[in-house]
Design a protein around this nucleic acid. Structure first.
Length: 420
RNA sequence: GGAGAGAUGGCUGAGCGGUUGAAAGCACCGGUCUUGAAAACCGGCAACGGGGCAACUCGUUCGUGAGUUCGAAUCUCACUCUCUCCGCCA
């Protein structure tokens, strides 16, 4: 949600920011609605004040057993005007909100300007690509050849974009999740939560998925939605709260399934388990004071990177350009992991600062010297577990089709050296 | 699923239809006292919005939405949520 004061004072600048994010200029319309709304409100409030004071007089007269019929007649006349103006104010306010709740966050100054992923810039990279004497296999070739990854049966159960992991691969998924959670809670300073996977629409509004992106989500009836990411429940834990300064920064982590309809991705990544309707992810969320959010984003990125460093898998970090960022983000780093089987980099984490954008939607503030200030929220994957599993398969594959176990995961897998 | 109770400020918790935006306590902030701290005492302390350069002023808000009334935290209706008991159940 946007600060209407900022738009009032910087309409051209606002339009410019929106243009960078692929929106049309709209400040004119916003300011016009805002003006009408405020004028209506002023007139309305004067009438309300008049009604209130006459009502008080009536109360006084009645308690003195005097005649109040003249005053009551006066109020009666005002009442009609009031209800008309009230209606108008509500309409204008709704029109304004419809616009304001559907505009994306303003990008941070340091974000490269551009329309799509081609304008993303490389922030840094780590490690080197492994080399193979043969054509590296894809994760689904490896998984299926080992008999541990089953797309056919999954589609019998649930349709396309689902997978079944069996035996050692199922255990590997658990090992990865445990390793990530241990790392983030023991070394990176996050507190672990076990969360609801169903949320109400208020929560999805708070983090920005609703009202605009409902078609990307699965519903579960009764005003419940399946979470597309743990960001939603984690961040909304502080919705409608006024926090104390000494509670900040807050750092949360959680391992949850994520459910996405992938409505806009038909035909994309249909092979393998890269893009599924259901996947698991370890999520990181921070709630911080505004002046600390830039630094917190770097910290969060490093926390996510620490997982891949420990796994010793090559990756690069991209700074997303204005046109490629998510709705709520003001700045986003994507971590792209190297997948030898694909011969390509693929997103495995996305770390975003949402500045005060979600905080305004959620009305989350903290007390600072008797003032209530909107917090800044950040979220990042640390990491997507399914895609980490893919990365391990492809990077740790051996010529015979078996998989080496990364050093840090051994203790989670009976100290085995290889998958089977 | 059946029966009942409830929802008030950061928290706990009072509140006959008419200075109740709301008692009291806690928390918090400032001060006195103290070598320092604690205690005690004094003072301050809801949010959001409109108008105004400002002092300030007006409006809205007691779960949400309608209604009754000149006037609603207080009365009526619907909805949401929470809790208790019973039943069912991982």
């Amino acid at each position: 949600m946007h600060n209407i004061n900022f738009i009032r004072e910087n309409p051209t600048e606002f339009d410019n920011y929106m243009k960078q994010r692929g929106e049309k200029p709209i400040s004119n319309k916003i300011l016009e609605l805002d003006k009408v709304k405020r004028e209506t409100q002023t007139v309305l409030q004067n009438l309300l004040a008049e009604r209130n004071s006459i009502s008080k007089t009536i109360g006084k007269l009645k308690s003195e057993k005097k005649d109040a019929s003249a005053e009551m007649k006066k109020v009666d006349e005002i009442k009609n005007k009031i209800s008309n103006l009230k209606e108008l104010e509500i309409i204008k306010n709704e029109e304004l909100n419809t616009i304001l709740t559907r505009l994306p966050n303003i990008p941070h100054k340091s974000v490269p300007i551009g329309s799509d992923e081609n304008n993303n810039t490389k922030y840094r990279e780590w490690g080197t690509k492994p080399s193979f004497d043969y054509k590296a296999k894809t994760h689904y070739e490896l998984g299926e050849d080992l008999g541990l990854m089953d797309f056919e049966t999954a589609s019998k159960l649930s349709g396309s974009r689902f997978v079944i992991l069996k035996n050692q691969l199922s255990k590997l998924e658990r090992a990865i999740a445990n390793f990530m959670l241990d790392k983030h809670t023991n070394e990176n300073g996050y507190t672990e939560y076990n969360l609801p996977f169903l949320v109400k629409d208020d929560s999805l509004f708070g983090t920005g998925q609703l009202p605009k992106f409902g078609e990307d989500l699965f519903t579960a009836g009764d005003n419940h939605w399946l979470i597309p990411t743990a960001e939603v429940p984690l961040t909304n834990m502080v919705r409608e709260e006024i926090l104390n300064q000494n509670q900040l920064p807050m750092r949360f982590t959680s391992y949850t399934p994520c459910f996405r309809s992938e409505a806009g991705a038909s035909g994309k990544d249909t092979r393998g388990m890269l893009r599924q309707h259901q996947f698991t992810k370890v999520e990181l969320v921070s709630v911080v004071e505004p002046q600390n959010s830039e630094q917190e984003l770097e910290r969060m990125l490093e926390s996510a990177e620490s997982i891949l460093k420990d796994l010793n898998i090559h990756y690069r970090v991209m700074t997303l350009c204005t046109g490629d960022m998510g709705f709520s983000a003001c700045k986003t780093y994507d971590i792209e992991v190297w997948l030898p089987g694909e011969n390509n980099y693929r997103e495995i984490s996305s770390c975003s600062s949402c500045s005060d954008f979600q905080a305004r939607r959620m009305n989350t503030r903290y007390k600072l010297e008797n003032k209530n200030i909107f917090v800044h929220t950040l979220n990042g994957s640390g990491l997507a577990v399914g895609r980490t599993l893919i990365a391990i398969l492809e990077n740790y594959q051996m010529p015979n089709g078996n998989i080496k176990i990364p050093e840090v995961l051994k203790k989670y897998l009976n100290n085995s050296d290889t998958l089977i």
